[in-house]
Design a binder for these strands. Structure first.
Length: 721
DNA sequence: TTGTTCCAGCTTTTT
DNA sequence: GCTGGAACAA
């Protein structure tokens, strides 16, 4: 293969990044500037032109999807199998490292990965056992605290006691949780990263091995790395000048979960020999969308600096719609989508982006009412569903009787008459003797401790698990899964659940057998791991997609966060109101406000051709009527890039800084300019403008107490005075 | 063990 | 004002 195939399709900046002589590099890649492309082509370049063995390449991403895509694209481009190349998520790679070196990590080689849900349950149980008041120390906050510490590389033993009672209890919980996990061989997500870091740090030989192996280290979405992830990268690359990172400080939107945008600046200091390359040519959006986005993000301070441009035309102006209320907003958006579809476009090309999940409901209702298929992103993913986790818990417990969190989950699911009292007794013994719940249960049964009823129920449970263990001996993975679902009678249990909820659960369980059948455990080269173990770890680390049927042509609904990395020809950003976006919790803090602004930037740069931004003048929130101001972000967009949408007025006039006094007469003629009116919420006011007709007729009223408002006559109950 | 009632909480999410 | 979870009663 020659050079052309790898760099021909690239622009100058991309080409420079791809073909630079080996050294550390920071590629500042704007939205839609082809960042994955650069990463993929860089790796291809190393392999084909620099003759680097795939074996010596490491590439890290945040999501499994990104990792899969990258591997696939490298393989396609080179037409080779890149098996020996380490491409994966931080968590996936850390997991792999710990499996291979469980001894050095001081982990039992049967350790299990637990997800955040298991983690919370574990903490709750722990706190109950410790008799800690969960109103003063909410378990959720404790989880958050523990994970935040781990993300910073801080162990319980590192924390100084301040004498503060709250802190002391928190610390106690952290300590107890560390103990419990250690004892039961459980590893949470944050622990994967921290332990992988510590294991390398503390084993000179191991570290030397990997530093030597990974001659080229690549990181995607570098702005999203947290402290421990960056520390891990530094361990591997410090002094070697071989760290290639791609990121965009303007798209850092995960500060609240530990991402350190500072890592980008630290990188520049700590790899002084690095090459900085900016990718500023955008291949996604129109000129107007880019101009607006550039202007908005320019309001942030301390940026690395970047301005997107396109070779294509300016395109449409950004449409701004001021809705009377949230109902009107949803109605407007859905109508525009219907129009778009009627013009022959596909629904899947239209996206509704919102700040918070709760906002989706109204849009869903309106879409449903008009019979428009839609898809909401971000619900529970396949392996996160209750029925799936229950079924997996049977498998977990069968394979590892010491898995207490699996034990707790299914000891009485489906209900088999084992009550709280029985379980509490088991828990108590387990705690006293520092043994697993399973062992405690067996030992209490042997001692004849239970009432005949409870003893019988427990016996049944033990039989199920032991029976499964027997059946599983040498059985195919899918057969084991099938056995577990059958023996546990989970299907019968969920069939009883009323509504179609139960039906969906049964379907999911059946789907789980399919998932197991199709499961491709190619990487089962780790000796002492069974197929089942690999499958279970896969389920924890990769929760799968939220919805199976992605193929139908559906309108896309999602939060701004989950829209990152995606693009759509038609985008609606809704709810641009102070208090909602930017969120109320962020307005008093400059750093958080800037993150909101970046989120807005991310949203806008999702749009390829058409961008609508909407806000409501009145919105019901938490049961109260609110009259929010339009989002400050709207004011940061140059008016030259905006056009205000007036329903049915059929003239879309540019926004002018001074409100035009031009007015048209509504067809009803009931409202003359200057007419005094009364509104049940806003009080008295004077009509200044009339606009549109029929159901769309609106009036602008200047209220004595509430200020200027546009009101939809079909909604607003106006009284002529 | 199930159904009811009460009460807090209410951004964003991947692994 | 709604929802989900936990506490409570039958």
């Amino acid at each position: 293969m020659d050079v052309t195939a790898i760099i021909d399709s690239l622009n100058d900046a991309q080409r420079q990044a791809v073909s630079a002589p080996s050294r550390s590099m920071l590629v500042l890649a704007g939205a839609g500037s082809g960042k994955t492309r650069v990463l993929v082509h860089r790796i291809a370049w190393l392999i084909k032109i620099e003759r680097v063995s795939p074996h010596n390449i490491l590439a890290v991403t945040f999501t499994n999807k990104a990792a899969k895509e990258m591997r696939g694209r490298v393989e396609d481009l080179l037409n080779i199998s890149a098996r020996s190349m380490w491409i994966g998520t931080f968590h996936g790679l850390a997991h792999r490292l710990l499996r291979q070196h469980s001894e050095e990590a001081k982990l039992p080689n049967t350790f299990q990965v637990i997800d955040s849900d298991d983690q919370l349950r574990l903490i709750k149980r722990l706190m109950k056992a410790m008799n800690i008041d969960d109103t003063r120390w909410p378990p959720k906050q404790m989880v958050w605290f523990i994970n935040a510490q781990k993300d910073e590389g801080i162990r319980a033993s590192h924390i100084q006691e301040t004498g503060d009672l709250y802190q002391q209890k928190q610390l106690e919980i952290y300590r107890a949780y560390e103990d419990l996990c250690k004892r039961s061989g459980l590893v949470d997500f944050a622990e994967l990263l921290l332990l992988a870091f510590e294991t390398l740090r503390d084993n000179a030989e191991l570290l030397a091995f990997y530093r030597n192996r990974f001659q080229h280290v690549h990181v995607d979405e570098f702005q999203d790395t947290n402290t421990i992830q960056y520390a891990w990268l530094r361990l591997l690359t410090d002094g070697k000048d071989n760290l290639f990172v791609v990121g965009d400080d303007d798209q850092s939107i995960y500060g609240w979960r530990g991402a350190k945008i500072e890592n980008m600046f630290n990188f520049q200091k700590q790899y002084p020999n690095h090459l900085l390359i900016r990718l500023e040519q955008n291949y996604r959006s129109t000129g107007n969308i880019l101009k607006a986005s550039n202007a908005l993000i320019a309001c942030n301070e301390g940026r690395m600096g970047k301005e997107l441009h396109t070779d294509d035309g300016d395109g449409d102006l950004i449409s701004l719609y001021s809705a009377f209320n949230e109902q009107d907003e949803a109605y407007f958006v859905v109508e525009r989508i219907r129009k778009w579809v009627a013009e022959g476009n596909s629904r899947a090309d239209a996206a509704i982006l919102y700040r918070s999940n709760a906002q989706s409901r109204l849009f869903e209702e309106k879409l449903m009412a008009t019979g428009t298929p839609y898809r909401v992103y971000g619900g529970l993913r396949f392996f996160d569903r209750m029925e799936i986790k229950n079924a997996l818990a049977y498998l977990h417990l069968t394979a590892h009787k010491g898995n207490d969190s699996a034990f707790e989950r299914i000891i009485n699911t489906p209900t088999r008459g084992i009550g709280t009292k029985t379980i509490d007794e088991i828990r108590q013994l387990a705690r006293e003797q520092q043994i697993t719940l399973w062992q405690a249960m067996i030992s209490l049964m042997k001692a004849g401790h239970f009432t005949p009823r409870a003893a019988n129920a427990l016996k049944g449970f033990v039989q199920i698990i032991n029976g499964l263990a027997e059946q599983s001996e040498g059985a195919e993975l899918y057969q084991q899964v099938k056995n577990a679902i059958e023996k546990s009678s989970l299907i019968e249990f969920y069939k009883k659940e009323k509504g179609d909820k139960g039906e969906a659960r049964v379907e999911n369980l059946e789907e789980l057998v399919n998932a197991a059948r199709q499961f491709d455990y190619e990487e089962s080269n780790e000796e002492d791991q069974t197929e089942l173990d690999i499958f279970l770890a896969h389920a924890a680390l990769e929760a799968g997609d939220a919805q199976g049927d992605a193929f139908e042509d559906c309108v896309q609904l999602m939060t701004l966060h989950s829209a990152k990395g995606l693009e759509f020809p038609l985008v609606f950003m809704v709810g641009l109101e102070e208090g909602l976006f930017p969120s109320q919790q962020s307005v008093d803090d400059l750093a958080r406000l800037e993150e909101e602004r970046r989120l807005c930037y991310v949203g806008m740069t999702r749009a390829m051709k058409h961008l609508y931004m909407t806000y409501a003048e009145s919105r019901r929130l938490y049961g109260k009527e609110n009259y929010p101001r339009p989002s400050r972000f709207l004011k940061e967009i140059p008016v030259e890039q905006l056009q205000e949408i007036r329903l049915r007025a059929s003239v879309s006039k540019p926004v002018t800084p001074v409100k035009s006094s031009k007015s048209t007469m509504g067809t009803s003629g009931r409202y003359q300019l200057g007419q005094r009116v009364n509104h049940e919420k806003f009080g008295e006011g004077v009509v200044l403008q009339v606009d549109g007709d029929g159901a769309q007729e609106r009036v602008q009223v200047n209220f004595a107490n509430a200020g200027m408002k546009w009101l939809m006559l079909s909604y607003a109950k106006l009284e002529v005075l």
